[in-house]
Design a protein around this nucleic acid. Structure first.
Length: 936
RNA sequence: GCUGAAGUGGUGGAAUUGGUAGACACGUUGGACUUAAAAUCCAAUGGAUAGUAAUAUCCGUGCGGGUUCAAGUCCCGCCUUCAGUACCA
């Protein structure tokens, strides 16, 4: 009987589907375990072999946990709103719903071939109205909440209104927009509704605000900070410019501290936590005011180095700072205005690429040093960012390199306040190794001493206060796109009003075209049925808008991360039409125990999900405040591109081995045209692309290509489709090989030739159980060696999988099968448990062998075997060691040995003992635990 | 610049966390089977030196030091690569 993987895999995939083998329900008698993957965006290109890597790992872990007796939730769905489907719709006029549906079907058929244990009965798509109904609800909740810093949690907005009615906002400690004006309860009560709403917008967690946004005209939308890479859009690499627009925002900054601190209670990689810490960017310092000569206004600055206050020789404002024009003297006004214009025209990319270029201009105004009362010139410069701190800095050229460069460039005084430190070439930026001088009462103090002294003094004299600053900005939540969740919002005289949650979902309307309108409105501006009737409570035709009972609906849609920020909650109760998920399901399934996905979402999805989870926790809607307990970031699988050399200016191609110093161009060719020995199939190449029809190929016996490791992409023709691998070697070979490639978290190149290794292993495994006559396993007593192999393997595999070392687990299986083959083991007592521990990795072949052994029920119903220590006993290590000048032999032994057994072991190690100058042991000291010392 | 991760054969990678470095697999070479090829099986495979041989000795985990009976692993100082971030006051 041969190992016919094609029919075996088809048979069992069908069996699992027909028997609902992987459907999961709440079972209070069992402990739960929740394993989740980052759900895919179904792109038109389908899956390549890199995509399933994380799914295979999570599948193995999920199956393993099931065998260990856990009730495992292992769902899958689709993140189906997004730009590519919309771009395609713009080009072809096809509704994104249709292309998305088509792509999902492709994905599903590809995934099904790999034999995953997903519970597909829980599948959903973020673009389903039944799903985004709840995304809209969470938006409403955010809109109807504010953040109380005293209680350190979000609270309903009604409670804030109560506070305003009773005492205004004088004693309020809440997260809000900048430059809030103060009002009393009487004032609040006299505000009209519009004014009240305007005030509330400063506190809501989802709020509408005129904000400086990253506008991308090529994509026709705004982008969040995490969607911009190196100053250009992440998708497409288009130019970004700053623009001020009325946008929905999420007040994520309210949660900055909790997002930072709670990193300590989750099991994520250090680099992932560090990335989030940097992104949040907490810095502790002092905020203080500098008065301006001849003006009532003062400049507020933020500094982390208050100890250097006596080194201030000028101040610098961001060009966008409110006071710039106000304080500039008449003589300087022209120059200042010119500079502001210059700075605003510089795009983000210019600023980054011209970091070294120093620009700035003097305003003509002077500030007063808060302690020495000296006159300090006020400059503006674009090295100061309007968006960080207060948009103004006290410049200490001797202690900050940028201030130093600026001062040198414009020939400003650089006073030295560091004793015995030379600052003629560069600033001294360390916080250690100095004592202050020329600093009045701080003279002679170190950084810590001076900081304490100056902070006490500033606070006592009411000049400054301790303050904490964050780099984290509030997130822009509006997109000028079609293919996203509509906002449940309509406008009455430009004041946003919420559509009551009873009328959700607000379904995405149909449009004729997916482009923005001629007047520049988002695509939803084209929708005919897009107005809200407040009496009927339904969507009606736009023509009916009268601004009395029918009002316009928001035209923006939500960003891609809206639907993915809470999706893990929906899997636990996916068909619930009354709430996000029931309390019962929440109490049982709780949050995700293991989450596997790429690290590129560190500052986007993973941060936003944590934010929304904390928010829902604050409202008492869920009983936990972190979504993902353990996170593993699988590394990318890179493609191995094939490159041929074309002699420059000719139609001749030269084989890699013949290339010397000729001038050549590198041309990517499809990796499918190249065999394992890097030989190119020239006939197939000519069929592949007509440009090679007339080409001449220079080579000896065969034409060799160059290899290059780069990201797997259609563009480089290096994509390997898992379907082809499944067809040629089988899903089990693929699963095993993807794990065998290397550590899960590492970036590694794909190399199809290696798959014969895992494929051969499966054939070997098959032959261990089956020969020409059929099954050869017998119910006989096993050999001692085979028992040892089995129990050693169980122990190792258990340890490997608990530490997520899937690659070494595969190696250990190979060792075990090699050993059992050598031992000619046919004992059922060995071979049955071996199948069970293998089944998470290679579910199809193990199911088949399991049933061939005569078992009636599926192997997935079995339980993971436990290894027994008694089969593993032996001395493991012997080595010389010197203690107190005497040479001793140190033996590391397994536990539970009696003296007789130890003696036996010593006899076996005569060679080692003899090596030590021929001495023999005189005395044996048995140390409690597992170490034995022999004095020689 | 800052932060994080990592440098081990021709290749992917092991090493029970301080204890025989190179497991396992690919590739390569030789052999068996075959008319032949494929498939399969067996053997060799870090380097150098000596020997007909079994074998022996030395060198070897990016570089230079150190601790230790013992270092891929720990400490100090460098170099390189990858990732994240970047005028953050």
């Amino acid at each position: 009987m041969k190992y016919n993987f094609r029919s075996i895999e088809k048979k069992w995939q069908k069996y699992w589907a027909n028997n609902n083998t992987y459907q999961t329900n709440i079972d209070l008698n069992k402990k739960k375990y929740y394993v989740m993957d980052m759900f895919p965006y179904p792109s038109g290109e389908g899956l390549h072999v890199g995509h399933p890597l994380g799914y295979i790992a999570s599948d193995i872990y999920a199956r393993y946990k099931k065998l260990k007796g856990f009730n495992v939730l292992h769902p899958q769905g689709y993140d189906s709103f997004g730009l590519p489907a919309e771009q395609y719709a713009i080009q072809t006029g096809q509704h994104p719903k249709k292309t998305t549906e088509k792509n999902i079907n492709t994905y599903r058929s590809q995934l099904d071939k790999i034999g995953f244990s997903f519970d597909w009965s829980r599948e959903f798509r973020t673009s389903d109205p039944d799903y985004y109904k709840w995304t809209q609800l969470i938006f409403i909740k955010l809109f109807e909440s504010w953040y109380d810093k005293n209680q350190d949690k979000a609270r309903p907005i009604n409670q804030l209104i109560n506070i305003f009615c009773k005492s205004g906002n004088y004693n309020l400690n809440a997260s809000s927009n900048k430059n809030i004006f103060q009002f009393s309860a009487d004032q609040w009560n006299e505000f009209n509704d519009d004014k009240k709403e305007e005030v509330l917008q400063d506190y809501r967690l989802a709020y509408l605000a005129e904000s400086e946004v990253n506008w991308c005209s090529e994509l026709g939308t705004v982008l969040a900070n995490d969607e911009i890479v190196n100053g250009v859009s992440e998708r497409g690499g288009y130019k970004i410019e700053k623009r001020s627009m009325l946008q929905w925002n999420m007040r994520i900054s309210a949660y900055a501290d909790r997002l930072l601190n709670d990193l300590d209670k989750i099991d994520w990689s250090t680099s992932m936590k560090e990335t989030q810490r940097n992104w949040i960017g907490k810095s502790i310092g002092v905020s203080m005011k500098f008065n301006i000569f001849g003006h009532d206004d003062s400049i507020e600055v933020f500094t982390t180095r208050p100890d250097t206050i006596f080194g201030v020789s000028f101040m610098t404002l961001a060009p966008e700072h409110d006071l710039v024009l106000k304080i500039s003297t008449n003589e300087k006004k022209d120059e200042v205005e010119k500079y502001i214009k210059f700075a605003s025209n510089r795009t983000e990319k210019d600023r980054i690429s011209e970091v070294k270029k120093i620009t700035g201009v003097f305003t003509g105004a002077y500030a007063e040093h808060p302690i020495s009362k000296n006159k300090i010139p006020i400059w503006i410069g674009d090295y100061v960012l309007a968006t960080y701190g207060t948009g103004a800095v006290m410049s200490v050229p001797c202690g900050d390199q940028r201030d130093y460069d600026f001062a040198k460039f414009f020939d400003i005084d650089i006073p030295n306040i560091f004793k015995d430190i030379n600052i003629s070439d560069q600033a001294f930026i360390d916080k250690q190794g100095f004592k202050l001088k020329n600093s009045s009462f701080l003279d002679g103090l170190t950084f810590n001493e001076a900081t304490d002294a100056i902070v006490a003094m500033l606070e006592k004299d009411n000049i400054g206060t301790k303050e904490i600053n964050y780099r984290l900005r509030n997130a822009v939540f509006s997109r000028q796109r079609y293919w996203g969740e509509p906002f449940p919002v309509y406008y009455v005289n430009n004041i946003p009003k919420i559509i009551d949650k009873n009328y959700l979902p607000i379904k995405l309307p149909d449009v004729q075209k997916y482009l923005p309108t001629e007047s520049g409105e988002p695509p939803l501006g084209r929708a005919e049925n897009w107005a809200w009737d407040v009496e009927e409570n339904k969507i009606v035709e736009k023509q009916k808008i009268d601004n009395k009972k029918v009002f316009p609906i928001e035209l923006n849609t939500m960003p891609g991360w809206a639907g993915s920020s809470w999706y893990f909650l929906r899997y636990i109760d996916p068909n619930n039409s009354n709430e996000i998920c029931s309390k019962e399901s929440l109490d049982y399934w709780s949050n995700v125990d293991l989450y596997i996905g790429g690290s590129e979402h560190a500052t986007g999805h993973l941060l936003y999900s944590r934010f929304w989870t904390k928010f829902l926790f604050d409202l008492g809607m869920i009983p936990f405040d972190e979504p993902f307990k353990k996170l593993i970031n699988q590394g990318m699988i890179l493609g191995s591109s094939a490159i041929i050399y074309r002699m420059s200016g000719t139609n001749k191609y030269i084989s890699k081995d013949l290339l010397k110093n000729e001038k050549v161009e590198e041309i990517h060719v499809d990796v499918g045209l190249v065999n394992f020995s890097d030989e190119l199939d020239i006939d197939a190449l000519k069929k592949w692309q007509p440009m090679f029809d007339e080409a001449e190929f220079i080579c000896k016996n065969s034409f060799l290509v160059e290899r290059k490791i780069e990201k797997m992409s259609k563009r480089w023709y290096n994509v390997v489709n898992p379907d082809l691998i499944c067809e040629e070697y089988g899903a089990d070979s693929l699963r095993l090989f993807e794990m065998f490639l290397g550590p899960l978290e590492q970036y590694k190149p794909w190399n199809t030739s290696g798959i014969v290794g895992t494929h051969n292993f499966l054939k070997k495994l098959w032959r261990l159980y089956v020969d020409d006559a059929g099954i050869k396993v017998k119910d006989i007593k096993p050999e001692k060696d085979s028992l040892k192999t089995l129990h050693k393997t169980i122990k190792k595999i258990d340890n490997d999988i608990e530490t997520y070392s899937f690659n070494t687990a595969v190696s250990n299986f190979m060792i075990a099968v090699n050993e059992l083959t050598d031992q000619k083991c046919i004992s059922n007592e060995i071979l049955s448990p071996l199948l069970i521990i293998l089944s998470p990795y290679v579910p199809h072949i193990t199911e088949e062998l399991w049933s061939l052994l005569g078992n009636k029920q599926s192997i997935t119903k079995e339980s993971f075997p436990v290894y027994e220590k008694k089969f593993l006993k032996e001395a493991s290590k012997v080595y010389p060691v010197s203690i107190n000048g005497k040479v001793r032999l140190k033996l590391e032994l397994s536990l539970d040995l009696d003296n007789k057994q130890i003696e036996e072991i010593l006899l076996n190690h005569n060679d080692v003992i003899a090596k030590l100058d021929g001495a023999s042991p005189k005395r044996i000291i048995i140390v409690p635990g597992k170490i034995i010392n022999l004095v020689i």
